[in-house]
Each structure stands twice: as C-alpha cells, then as structure tokens.
Design a protein around this nucleic acid. Structure first.
Length: 515
RNA sequence: GGCCCCGUAGCUCAAUCCGGCAGAGCAGUUGACUCUUAAUCAAUUGGUUAGAGGUUCGAGUCCUCUCGGGGUCACCA
C-alpha cells in the first residue's frame, strides 16, 4: 500500500481525506463537460463578435462546463484564478467567494493543488486584463492528484515567445516517467502527435498506391530476413521455443506467392543487440513489397513516400535536421556503392576482389580491417565508416556485394553484386531494398552459403527456412521490396537526435528501489 | 562490453576545483490581499548529497566498489 514519500504527498493525502470527511468524492464517476477549453473560448469569442455587430450591443452570455487539470493557480484573497488544461488547450477559471459561496471557496482555498483535475461551471467573461475566462459558479474535483508533478512556470513576453522556468528536463526521469514528461512538457506531446501523423501518412500513401496492409507473425518458429540476434521465448503448452521476429521479409513475400500484388506491414521488430542513439531493442519497421517491380521502381516510390511524410508532418519537403537543411523532394541522388566508396576513400574495391587484398588496401589507407570479415562485410564497413556519415542530403546507394545480401537478385552480368539499395538521410540509414530474389534454387544456395560464411558467429546465421523455399517453388512474381526504419524517419521529421526521444517508452535498465 | 562525464529538497540548480555548519528559486505550509497571470508581501516546513565501504580530527567534495543515466567507441544491414 502506498504511503506518502514526503511532506508534499502527505499534505495532498490529508486534503483528500478532508474532502472525503465532508462527503466530497475526490474521484467521481460522472463528468458534465459541455465544452473543451478551446470550444468554450471560441464560443465566447464568436458570441462577442456577433454582439458587437448588433445595433444595441447587450451582455454576452455563454454558459459552459469545462474540465481539465489545474496547471497554474493564484489565490488572491477572496478571488481565485486558475488555468486548467485539457487535450485541446488551456482556459482560465476565475472564482469569487461571492459567486461560489463560502463553503466552496473554502474547498478551493484549502484542498486544491496543481495537478488536480477539476470541473467548472459558469459563464464566459473577459477579465480586466482581457483574458477570456470562466466566471465560476460551481467547481468540483474530478481527480485528486496525490503526487506533485514537476512545476513549470511560463512567462509570455511581449513578442509572444514563451519563457519557461524550471522545466522538467532530467533525461532519465523523463523517459522513466514519460507520463509526467507528457503532462508537463507540451513539446513532448507534440513529438508523438507528429509521430502519429508520420505513421498515418505512410499508411495513407501506401493505401493510395494500391498496397494491402497485412499482419504477419511476431512469434516465429524460424527467424530470418535480416542478420541479427533474436530474442528467444517459449510456448509452454507446445513445448516449443519461438523467436521474436527480426524482420517481416520472408512472410510478406509468401503473400506475393499467394497472389497479392502489393502488401505492406508496419509493426515491431526485435533485435537482441546493443542500444544506441539510433538503436532500440524493439523498433518500428515498415516493409512493403510490390509484384512486377524492381529496385528502380522502389526508389521512385520510396522517395515520393518520404517526401509525402515530411510534407504531412512538417508542411513541406525542406526540413531542418540537427542544424542542417535537408531537401527531401524527389529526385534523390543515386550513386553506386562502388563509386561512393571510391569517392570518399580512393579505394576501388573492384580492384581487390577478395577479402585479403581488400583488407590490405584498407590498412594501407590507414583504416582498420578485421581479418575475420568477408569481402562483403569489409565493403559494408567502408560504407558505414566513410560514406554513411557524409550522406546528409537524401541519397540512394546502389548495388551491394552478394555475400551480405542473401535475398536480393544478382545484377545481370555481375555475379559479385546484387540489385539492392539503401537510403540515407541525415547521416543515418533509413531503409533497405532489393530486387527480390525469386529463384528458389538460387535462394536455397544462398541460405547454404550464408550458413557457411557465418558459422563462426552462429547467432547471426540466417537459418534455412524450408517453408519459405517451398512457397517460392510454387512461383513468386518478380518484385521489389523495401524496409524503412520508422523511428529514424520520425527522428528526421521531428528533428530529434536520439531514438529515445521518439519512443514513448524507450527501453531502460531496471532500477532498484527509487522510483 | 571498453573509455569519458554525471547522480545534492517534489522540480530546476548552487556548494565539488582547493575537505571545515548542505543553500537558492519554484512548489508546499501559515498569514495578508475581491481582476491575477513567472502575481506580490511576511513567516516557515522540507535532505540517508544514488548505495556500500575506505582515507581523515572532520567527506556532498578525496579513494575503491556497486547501481542508474548520458556521451563515445565496439557491436548492429
């Protein structure tokens, strides 16, 4: 059973008990709200301007009942001012002992705290200072707050800018108690409204392009579609270990075998790996697959989609990300991986066709090169170290080494490369796409090849998915597929430098007693 | 996982360099105030300085370990 942790909570508990002792229910079941704060304000302003246009202006009477959380209060002798906030906005309450009576005024004076939810009934008016307010006739507690929220004071200066004092800014506490962060920091609420707008824009765009939204298993007997360590869980009754999915890829492509032309899924992937400013153990992924398409048409579609999302969230395709101006309107730069690496490092990896010679060239250029890495992994290292950080403006990097891309079709006439692109914006990888491999025998060979290449670090092996191969043997149409990291996309359009700022409840290590 | 930085009242922060009574603002409490809006004025409560151990006459401060967070590197398509 909870008990007060400090005098602030003790005093609030005393107030709650005092209310109950006077037969005032601090958590009533029913609310009688007639207007949101903003509706009340607009109703009054409309009535005011209508009255002003009439020949003989009379008193404006707009009766309302509003409800919200007390975010500021100011007791001034026998009058009381408070601002309440609801999901729509803020509104001032103005209560006088003459209007509400002595008993109610005593409750206001003694028992109300910042953070309490209240309901106020009265008529709209304007204070002498000009602020539209509710002249309160009745005031009721809707929910007593026992713990104090962080206190933030705001000062609106002459030019309309809001100065804030004592903002709740402790990063760890903001994440651990996101509800408090959201309650007191409107800009945090704005981030997650923007996130919702971004996700719904993705859906709208793909729906309009004729894609079908589907849902595939999160619990999978065989994981695959990416190189990542999975989370393992267990089904008790089936006596079966299951994996939390690391990608949707193999299930979505089964659906193309099943004759859907275009499908997408937005959902959670889980990867049992380190956390960083752009990695969380669970993250939101968008994957979409289109039959009769290839990676060129996926590029066209993807750049239009990202530009659409930016436009829907920010109002335009030119955005500011971490101090840099980024233009997301198509067309985006397209450059092969080989050219991009040669531009940045002077190394043309085509001249070093095996891992040993490439690693030697990298070391000669002063770069680290893990001797255990395959040729493709070395190239991937070059991409990550030398190319990725330079890609601030949106760019597609094309044509990847075959051995790190087991689900992509080869470039015609070039057995060492596959038709694959990754897209980068703001120095971050935002997505990954292929001309999807639909040759079942080649696919089987790739599984075997991957198993051989990665037997050393077996946890990242892509296991052979026999059911997926069976599906492909029924015939899979040529298709393009693309995956987009939704969290990173949201970082981009909300100008946040870490993924935790765009996750409502980012993963944090468990903490002991303090809470 | 390595390295660096951080953890003081409900919130935001001082005091740490160079060991010497643990402070301020907001919030709270009491009082004054019938148009305030960072309201104001007066008085006042509130601390296991993240935790454990050590050095010292004396530790928020120095040392060791633990916990948590941030950054960075490693890892990670």
């Amino acid at each position: 059973m909870w008990s007060p942790a400090n005098n602030l909570e003790q005093e609030r508990l005393d107030k709650l008990n005092s209310l109950r002792a006077r037969q005032i229910e601090p958590y009533p079941n029913r609310v009688g709200r007639t207007h949101t704060t903003v509706e009340a304000l607009h109703a009054f302003e409309a009535a005011e301007s209508q009255a002003a246009s009439e020949p003989a202006p009379g008193a404006v009477t707009v009766a309302v009942t509003v409800a919200g959380r007390i975010v500021r209060q100011n007791l001034k002798g026998k009058v009381y001012f408070a601002h309440i906030e609801d999901g729509a906005g803020r509104l001032q309450l103005f209560a006088r002992i003459d209007n509400v009576g002595e008993a109610a005024y005593e409750m206001i004076r003694q028992d109300l705290d910042l953070g309490d939810f209240v309901q106020a009934s009265g008529t709209m008016m304007r204070t002498r200072a000009g602020e539209v307010s509710v002249l309160v006739e009745e005031l009721a507690v809707l929910a007593k707050a026992l713990s104090p929220l962080p206190v933030i004071k705001e000062h609106v200066t002459g030019d309309g800018t809001v100065e804030r004092y004592g903002a709740f800014s402790d990063v760890e506490e903001r994440y651990r108690q996101r509800y408090a962060d959201l309650a007191v920091n409107p800009e945090t609420r704005a981030v997650f409204r923007d996130r919702a707008r971004a996700v719904s824009a993705l859906r709208r765009f793909l729906d309009d392009e004729g894609f079908l939204e589907v849902e595939t298993p999160i619990l999978q007997p065989i994981y695959g579609g990416a190189a990542a360590r999975p989370f393992i869980t267990h089904h008790n009754q089936l006596h079966q270990d299951l994996y939390l999915r690391i990608s949707f890829e193999l299930y979505l492509k089964r659906l193309l075998v099943g004759m859907y032309d275009a499908v997408y899924e937005i959902g959670r992937d889980f990867r049992n790996e380190g956390v960083s400013f752009k990695h969380n153990p669970e993250f939101t992924q968008l994957e979409f697959y289109q039959a009769y398409a290839d990676y060129h048409s996926m590029m066209d579609l993807t750049e239009r989609m990202i530009a659409y999302v930016a436009e829907q969230v920010t109002g335009g395709t030119t955005i500011t990300f971490q101090g840099q101006t980024i233009e997301l309107a198509p067309p985006w730069q397209r450059i092969t991986l080989r050219d991009a690496i040669r531009d940045r490092t002077g190394i043309d990896y085509a001249g070093y066709p095996d891992a040993a010679s490439l690693a030697g060239a990298m070391r000669a250029a002063g770069m680290g090169a893990d001797p255990a890495m395959t040729w493709g992994r070395l190239i991937d290292t070059l991409l990550g170290d030398a190319v990725e950080p330079t890609l601030i403006q949106p760019a597609f990097i094309l044509d990847y080494p075959r051995d790190i891309s087991p689900f992509a079709k080869s470039v015609p006439g070039d057995p060492t490369h596959v038709e694959r692109f990754e897209m980068f914006v703001g120095g971050m990888e935002m997505g990954n796409a292929f001309t999807e491999l639909n040759d079942p025998l080649d696919q089987e060979a790739r599984f075997v090849e991957m198993g051989r290449l990665y037997s050393a670090d077996d946890e990242e092996t892509t296991p052979v998915d026999e059911d997926y191969l069976r599906a492909m043997r029924y015939g899979m149409p040529p298709c393009g597929g693309c995956g987009v990291g939704v969290d990173r996309l949201v970082m981009l359009v909300t100008d946040k430098s870490t993924i935790r700022e765009v996750l409502l409840f980012p993963h944090l290590r468990e903490r002991g007693e303090r809470s």
